[in-house]
């Protein structure tokens, strides 16, 4: 019996030690997400609140031009927008990278890339990187599916688009599609957080 209490005590100590570790920042499913006002590639400022197609929510994707994993997903991001914009969940792409570190991610190059690929969704620049930091984006691509509740935007999914970056035809689990389908059906999102390999966001060096 004594042993039992000792092991409980040890477990509690371990928990305390664990909680001393810095908690990872950023949004988790269930959190309320802040809106933003960022410059789109057409030169106009865009917010979630004033985005006419975002009637039910939005698929916010932190991505960029240069990252090979972002490139692998460009066509799939276009497909997501085509499928879910009519259902009230349009794609909003945000490039958070510091262009002085990656010239390929400059505003001019964003305009070029969007034209080349025929992006059907806004491609915004997070110049101060404040939105990426607040959301807790670390990768490109990194998806945050938001559900609109009155005036609030609730995070319902954080993570990867699907389970096969390399080959779209071999995808077995479409995480973002499943999450949005769950929301549209009024269900709880089954897999609300999914990790995947990607490029680090290129933060400004202070």
């Amino acid at each position: 019996m004594n042993k039992f209490f000792i092991s409980i005590a040890v477990m509690c100590m371990t928990c305390l030690l664990w909680s001393n570790k810095p908690i990872s920042e950023g949004y988790k499913p269930g959190d309320k997400a802040r809106d933003f006002t960022l410059k789109n590639i057409d030169g106009k400022m865009l917010s979630l609140a004033t985005f006419p197609e975002a009637t039910k929510g939005a698929i916010v994707i932190f991505t960029c031009n240069h990252c090979p994993f972002s490139k692998m997903y460009e066509d799939r991001i276009i497909a997501l927008d085509a499928k879910y914009k009519p259902k009230g969940y349009p794609v909003v792409a945000i490039n958070p990278n510091d262009p002085s570190r990656v010239p390929e991610d400059s505003f001019e190059k964003m305009i070029e890339r969007a034209k080349e690929k025929g992006f059907t969704f806004p491609y915004l620049v997070d110049e101060t990187q404040e939105i990426a930091k607040t959301y807790g984006a670390t990768n490109t691509p990194h998806v945050f599916v938001l559900e609109k509740k009155g005036k609030d935007w609730i995070v319902r999914f954080v993570g990867a688009i699907d389970d096969n970056a390399k080959d779209a035809s071999q995808v077995k689990e479409r995480y973002v599609e499943e999450a949005v389908d769950n929301l549209i059906a009024g269900k709880k999102v089954k897999k609300a957080q999914v990790k995947a390999i990607g490029c680090t966001i290129k933060w400004k060096q202070s």
């Binding site: 670390t138 990768n139 990607g198 966001i201």
Partner: peptide
């Protein structure tokens, strides 16, 4: 990824 490091979201390096 979580088995390697729970704090890691998967970005490299």
């Amino acid at each position: 990824i979580d088995d390697v490091e729970p704090r890691w979201q998967g970005a490299i390096p």
